[in-house]
């Protein structure tokens, strides 16, 4: 005895209209179009952008940027691991030294540190081991070395905190299981603790690597020939300021995009055994 009034399966469903979404989308599209139009009719000679995109000076600058970013990160990660382990040491001298390093180099701006290293000769005209050898500081503190030290050492302070968080994220039971197998401290860190800490460490370090690529532009201030410095040198000569800045921005975009892809691959590698949903085959 089914009432016909309850029979509605033959009726047509009409999805509700999202008017708010439509309005928001229209506004955003209009804004994007306005920006695109502004750049299209603005005083930008796009043919100059194309022309200077791959000139030797820009290419050299690009290579220098990449080399500096990689080397500064290598220095930063090495210092970060060392100081993170020192920070967690039971030896109070090591622990507080690491704390002081992290405190000092996180607090002082990177640009200021670059200038300090570059002008080190004002404090120490010569450097070396007294009585054995001595060299003028200006010969050693080239823009390359000053930039590497300035960027690497301040990166180390940030990375030390990231690594410390990674080490602390590993369960106490893992340390005990490794000790029970008779592992020494170093082997335990290398074989058991670090591989697990990496899962926590990689994402922020990947971010910092990307940050470092951009931070190298500060080195243009101390005459290191990275890509922004090369672009500036060209526009000082031909006054195509915006075009050359766009060239530099283009290459930063490319490098950072590639790094993001690599970061994803590395994260996947270190997530071994982490996802219960993954196949065991």
């Amino acid at each position: 005895m089914t009432d016909t009034v309850y029979q509605i399966s033959h009726l047509v469903h009409v999805p509700r209209r999202h008017y708010g979404r439509m309005v928001a989308a229209a506004l955003v599209v209009a804004a994007l179009a306005a920006i695109a139009h502004a750049f299209a009719v603005g005083q930008i000679e796009w043919n100059y952008v194309g022309e200077f995109l791959t000139v030797p000076a820009i290419m050299t600058g690009l290579v220098n940027t990449i080399v500096m970013a990689i080397l500064a990160m290598v220095v930063g990660i090495a210092l970060g691991v060392i100081f993170a382990i020192m920070r967690l040491s039971e030896n109070p001298v090591l622990s507080y030294t690491a704390l002081g390093y992290i405190w000092l180099f996180r607090a002082v701006p990177a640009l200021l540190q670059l200038l300090l290293w570059f002008n080190l000769a004002l404090v120490f005209p010569t450097m070396g081991i007294p009585g054995v050898f001595s060299v003028p500081t200006v010969d050693v503190m080239t823009p390359f070395v000053a930039a590497l030290l300035g960027l690497g050492i301040q990166q180390g302070a940030f990375t030390a905190e990231v690594v410390r968080a990674g080490l602390l994220s590993v369960d106490r039971g893992q340390y005990e299981a490794a000790q029970t197998l008779g592992m020494t401290r170093l082997k335990m860190l290398r074989r058991i603790i670090m591989p697990q800490a990496m899962r926590v460490i990689i994402p922020p370090v990947g971010n910092e690597f990307i940050g470092m690529v951009k931070l190298t532009s500060l080195a243009s201030v101390i005459q290191y020939a990275e890509i922004l410095h090369s672009a500036q040198n060209i526009y000082y000569a031909n006054s195509r300021v915006i075009e050359l800045l766009i060239v530099a921005a283009f290459w930063y975009l490319i490098v950072v995009t590639i790094l993001s892809l690599i970061q994803g691959r590395i994260e996947k590698y270190f997530s071994k055994g982490a996802a219960p949903a993954a196949s065991t085959k």
Binding site: G173, Q174, E176, A178, I192, F270, K272, G273, A274
Partner: peptide, 11 residues
Amino acid sequence: MVFQRFNLFPH
């Protein structure tokens, strides 16, 4: 030693 919470190495 065998632990209450196993402590296998997850990686």
